[in-house]
Design a protein around this nucleic acid. Structure first.
Lengths: 197, 197, 197, 197
DNA sequence: AATGAATGAGCCTTCATTCAT
DNA sequence: AATGAATGAAGGCTCATTCAT
């Protein structure tokens, strides 16, 4: 019997290597050879396991999305009040792993990639929708539906914008500032709607 | 006798062609040949006038930024009150020309390109800073400095985020919604700060 | 305890798979992986048993040739008169199994392969010589040696040509026509030589 | 003004190089790089002018076919009697240029290629039909229609078969033998049909 | 006996760029 | 001023083959 069970390991290694490589480069203009080298395997293996560059990229996105989903779930489970849940959702987006320069850079490239690839677009939309509905749901327990949806939309956009701006800064992490800005937005809006936290 | 004075005309034609090509493709993965073809000239001419692809891309960005600057200036000049100036700044960002799918797509690619190119990064930062200072300046006439800066930051991030989200939607323009969301943010924050418009 | 005696079975399965795959593709541009997959085994096994792709192809040719030889022998044994033997030889070449589109396609690829491989060339020559000598021998019982050889040569060429043309047709089997054409050639030549059948 | 008018020259050089390369190799398994090298240009140029390997191959076939067509036309024009025309058609197929080992090898590969490519198949069918109709037409002036068509078919098949067999011989040209065999077939058939030449 | 794992070599193709005219 | 001609460099991908188990 041959050495067996390498597929999931290698796939995982390649995906991790893809995130690192894309993040470092800040662009999807990475070659399969670079990713493979980063993973310590031959380029042929990447094709063997993923079928092509496009699928490797997609798998990488899916992985990142899944990770974000897990982080979100974990954060929500430890939060008991609606306000805590809102704070958790915001915090997750700016957590160390998500807000790392490499990860942010990777995200940005995926947004661009979405312009060409319907698959990518769908994936990103699913993620955006989930984030939105989680936020809106928590907000609805504090204020009326329409207002909750509006705040969720505004906060979501603000978060995305802060990502972009983060990518443009040279170094200088500022997760705390970003979190404060979004939380202030939510708090102010809730206060204006008559909610006292 | 050779035709003289063609340089500025040809450069302009090539830049326009670059915007169209990049916008249609939704990616910076456009070839010099494609841009040249769109401009009706040979690829060699693009190099002749710009020295290389990178410089053509940079010139294209500069052109887009300058256009945005002009739009902003024009909008500000017709506005007389601070509130009107704020509204004008927001509106410019979502004007038909800026919020057109092609333009949004081009912007996004420039953000990614900034990851690799210090020149591009500097260019984008200059633009962001100008937009911010204009907004902050108008806001400072209505509330105190710190608050004004914070609101300008939040509004700026929200605008960028709405751009990204716009790029992900399939069709469906929604400039009005976007404007309303940002204006509501500013208004609510100002109201919370004791400003009645 | 390992299973023993698998070698001949596996070899046979792989050869059959090779014929099917080459025939379906209509080209020798088949991968070892495809043949192995068709045989339901791993590509590594094909190397294990044959030593390489080239040898697998050669073994496949040998098998096809042997099959044709058997068909010919069987046909000759049931024929009692020289004329019947001639008819049998012709008929074998256009029998259902030999004239099937897949088989014809495989033959054609072998002819091309012969350009590169002396082994293949020798193999094909052996087959051609056997076919020729069988035909010439039967004809010599009806007419003089020189004429018999000439007719055998003409008939052999005609048969090969009909194979090629068969491969170019889209569908439309026509074994009966082909047989009639070759038999008419032989009959006419014999008649001209004073033989009345 | 640039150096101009190289396109037809380069295309022709590449096609000639393709014929030589395919002929020498005896297989379509030639790389674009090899053909380009043989033509003394870079592989990129082959793509520049033909768009891809497949199109270069097709252009090569078309060239060979056109050449054959010209030879045929020239031969027919110098022939005045039907019998002379028949002899001319046969002779053209075995003329030095067509029956050269390299050319024969190239033909054979095209036949195989036709298995995969409908374009190639169509091209070869057109050629076969033209050859047949020319032959049949000349024969109809000597005997009745049905017989003429049958002889043309038989002769055509015999010619194709002689090509294949020629490809299998090692060296040893034998155009004269081939011509004699086909002419004998035609003559014998015509004689049997009551035509005295 | 059999195979999953892995790779080196090679091919087609693209593209920015150079250059002579 | 402008371009056709030409290429070097590089990338994605395929595939026969090897090897440890």
């Amino acid at each position: 019997m041959p050495k067996v069970g390498m597929e999931p390991l290698r796939k995982r290694e390649l995906i991790d290597a893809a995130i690192r490589t894309i993040g470092q480069r800040g662009s999807l203009d990475v070659t399969v050879a670079e990713i493979a080298h980063e993973a310590g395997v031959s380029p042929a293996l990447a094709h063997h396991y993923f079928g092509g560059k496009e699928q490797l990229i997609l798998a990488t996105m899916r992985h990142l999305l899944k990770e974000l989903g897990h982080d979100l779930l974990a954060a929500l489970q430890t939060a008991t009040t609606p306000a805590a849940r809102i704070a958790a959702i915001i915090a997750v987006n700016f957590s160390a792993s998500q807000f790392a320069p490499q990860t942010v850079a990777a995200w940005l490239t995926f947004y661009v990639h979405a312009q060409k690839s319907e698959d990518t677009r769908r994936l990103l939309r699913v993620y955006a929708r989930r984030m939105h509905s989680n936020l809106a749901h928590a907000l609805q327990q504090l204020t009326k539906r329409d207002t909750a949806v509006q705040i969720a939309e505004g906060a979501g956009a603000m978060i995305d914008g802060l990502y972009i701006r983060h990518a443009l800064r040279n170094g200088a992490p500022e997760a705390a500032n970003a979190i404060a800005l979004v939380e202030d937005y939510v708090t102010t809006k809730l206060a204006a709607a008559g909610v006292s936290q």
